[in-house]
Design a protein around this nucleic acid. Structure first.
Length: 588
RNA sequence: GGGGGCGUAGCUCAAUUGGUUAGAGUACCGGACUGUCGAUCCGGUGGUUGCGGGUUCGAGUCCCGUCGCCCUCGCCA
């Protein structure tokens, strides 16, 4: 062992080490230069330990050069801190190292931003931090997050291993399949003009593994989708991919619920009560305006379409007569939280989601105050109060439009209001987890004038809906399910079709000819014909799970080397041009 | 592609209605200091106000264009 190599980490030294000679390696988190002493807080991923350089030691002169983020090796004697000089903020705060030898292993110019973190301090611009990601990753909070993510992976692996699951890897270079997200393509050098596609998910491979008899499979898989980014979406992300044979929905729920409880117990020491609630898609869309509702607060949406008949409001009545809906929610006690201007600005908010406008109604003891009050006879006002359990001080917000617009608008408004009214603690250890089930199998694609698969074309319809596959396509419910945590879709899956006949009928409904289906998914259809077991599974968005555990709304906080919103890696500069020679080899 | 927000010292921010030499904290450099722990005190360096153009006696501030970042709609089976 070289003389500079560490005997301990910066997080482990305690009173029991007093009297020992130790060697620490780490980065200078901070330093305090005194006349006859230099105090250095030395940091590694295990913690921080105070090192003291004193004037009577040979190391003292060299210590004058120490600056932030230098990499040091310090050999010294462990001792207890002076009485009254213990630091309760540090785990190692009862002790310190009296430095005898100092080796400056590497120096560092003044960093472009502060690596040392303090509570409530503004972080530097994110693009600057992404450019110097290797420095950003030194920050204690990002280190904690990545350590937490490691724990998450380990808990999942251990749990699934104990349940008899096998981890199997599937290819990154595969075949492009139409539908779904835009593929990232990779040109073939050996077959000029031909392309691989990077996987959007291992979906087809895992089904083939079921046909092959690997009846309990999982994989921590990278998935790539060339679509625009969001705060919770990266082009490259990670799924815990799971598939099982000889199962129905309840079996998948059982495994994943056990896994979920284990993750929250092991990672945060939070107990998740089981079984998890199962919510019907139609119900959550009505009550929460979203298929991934945040259940940490109420603020439920109420159906008011049947109420508008009591009003004299032509706009509402026209909407309902035209097949639309009128719905609303009650922001309890919110009247004095919104100025007239802020109420008017809600119009701008709802217009983002395609709504034409919003009607606000202030509830007072004797009357309702609202621009639409004149259209509301006394009886209608009374009924509205009842419908929305309105009390003085409440603010009622109503939207009238096509059903999907009403849902999306009120769903987002609900979320917005919950934030403004502080109805939940974003940093709290509260996790409301539920299944959403009974999704429609198909949604109507207005542009292409055809039915499209809501989940994917291999999702099994519910048995009792099979008979109306062709006759009442829109009402067919799927054996599909999402796991929703605090308003995030954290997992989604389905029971797959294992019967080639049903699969053919489904392709037909989707407007796909036998030839087209063969061309696109021939290998899967062959597999389904050759003894495919009933099977189904799920994929967990690990980045979002890590976001839940780290209590962040920013996916870049839980990925070591993320891309920015324009899908650029600011550190490496990817994507970047390549040599003409490389292109020529590829025949491009 | 559309909408919104932002861009001032290495970093985080301020700068009144368009008006003096663009300030503060922090970092950095120098000095003082025997126990600090976001040390303290004294002094100092540091600016193409993203970039380009325009209006004006005068632009960080107003106008036009452009680039970048974040949020969002579309998109994401």
């Amino acid at each position: 062992m070289a003389s500079w190599q560490r005997t301990h980490t910066c997080g482990e030294l305690r009173e029991s080490h007093i009297g020992q000679t130790v060697v620490l390696n780490g980065w200078v988190n901070s330093y305090r230069a005194y006349n006859d002493q230099v105090f250095v807080d030395l940091r590694d991923r295990y913690g921080i330990t105070q090192v003291v350089f004193e004037a009577d030691q040979a190391s003292f002169v060299a210590a004058q050069e120490i600056r932030g983020e230098f990499v040091l090796s310090v050999r010294g004697l462990m001792r207890e801190r002076l009485p009254g000089k213990h630091n309760p903020k540090l785990a190692t705060g009862d002790v310190e190292v009296r430095a005898q030898e100092l080796t400056i292993l590497n120096r560092c110019p003044t960093p472009p931003f502060e690596v040392t973190e303090f509570p409530n301090e503004e972080l530097a611009n994110e693009d600057l931090r992404l450019q110097y990601r290797f420095l950003d990753l030194r920050r204690v909070s990002l280190q904690r997050t990545l350590i937490m993510r490691h724990r998450l992976n380990q808990v999942m692996r251990n749990f699934l291993d104990q349940q008899g699951f096998l981890e199997v890897e599937t290819p990154l270079l595969g075949r492009s399949t139409p539908e779904g997200a835009r593929d990232y393509l990779v040109p073939s050098r050996v077959h000029p003009g031909n392309w691989y596609a990077l996987p959007q998910s291992p979906q087809l491979y895992k089904q083939l593994l079921m046909v092959a008899g690997f009846d309990k499979y999982y994989q921590i898989a990278h998935c790539l989708r060339d679509e625009d980014l969001r705060a919770d979406r990266q082009p490259e992300f990670t799924q815990l991919d799971v598939e099982m044979s000889f199962v129905e929905m309840d079996d998948v729920f059982g495994v994943i619920e056990g896994l979920t409880a284990e993750v929250f117990k092991q990672c945060l020491d939070v107990v998740i009560p089981l079984p998890l609630p199962r919510l019907k898609y139609a119900d959550v869309m009505l009550k929460y305006g979203s298929d991934k509702p945040d259940l940490r607060y109420g603020l439920e949406i109420a159906e008011l379409s049947d109420w508008v008949g009591q009003t004299e409001f032509k706009v509402f009545q026209g909407t309902v007569a035209g097949g639309g809906k009128v719905r609303g929610l009650n922001a309890k006690g919110a009247v004095d939280k919104f100025s007239r201007k802020q109420l008017d600005d809600l119009t701008l908010f709802v217009q983002r989601y395609g709504a034409k406008g919003i009607s606000w109604i202030k509830v007072e003891k004797e009357k309702l105050t609202s621009p639409v009050e004149k259209f509301l006879p006394a009886a209608a006002q009374q009924a509205l109060r009842q419908r929305l359990s309105a009390e003085p001080g409440d603010l009622l917000l109503l939207v009238a439009d096509k059903e999907d617009v009403v849902c999306q608008t009120l769903g987002n408004l609900r979320q917005h209001l919950a934030g403004v009214l502080k109805l939940f603690d974003p940093d709290g250890n509260v996790f409301k987890i539920a299944w959403v089930v009974d999704f429609p199998s198909f949604i109507w694609d207005e542009e292409e004038k055809r039915w499209a698969a809501n989940h994917h074309p291999f999702t099994a319809p519910r048995d009792e809906d099979l008979h109306k596959l062709e006759s009442d396509t829109g009402s067919v419910r799927a054996k599909a399910y999402d796991l929703v945590i605090n308003g995030y879709e954290c997992a989604g899956g389905s029971i797959r079709i294992h019967n080639p006949e049903v699969q053919s009928r489904l392709f037909k409904v989707l407007g796909m000819s036998v030839e087209q289906a063969r061309q696109r998914f021939g290998f899967l259809l062959d597999a389904l014909r050759m003894g495919a077991p009933p099977h189904g599974g799920i994929a967990l968005g690990l980045d979002r799970w890590a976001m839940m555990l780290a209590k962040t709304g920013n996916i870049r906080d839980v990925i070591a080397f993320p891309k920015n919103q324009k899908a650029r890696d600011l550190m490496t500069g990817a994507p970047a041009p390549v040599d003409a020679k490389q292109l020529k080899e590829l025949g491009l």
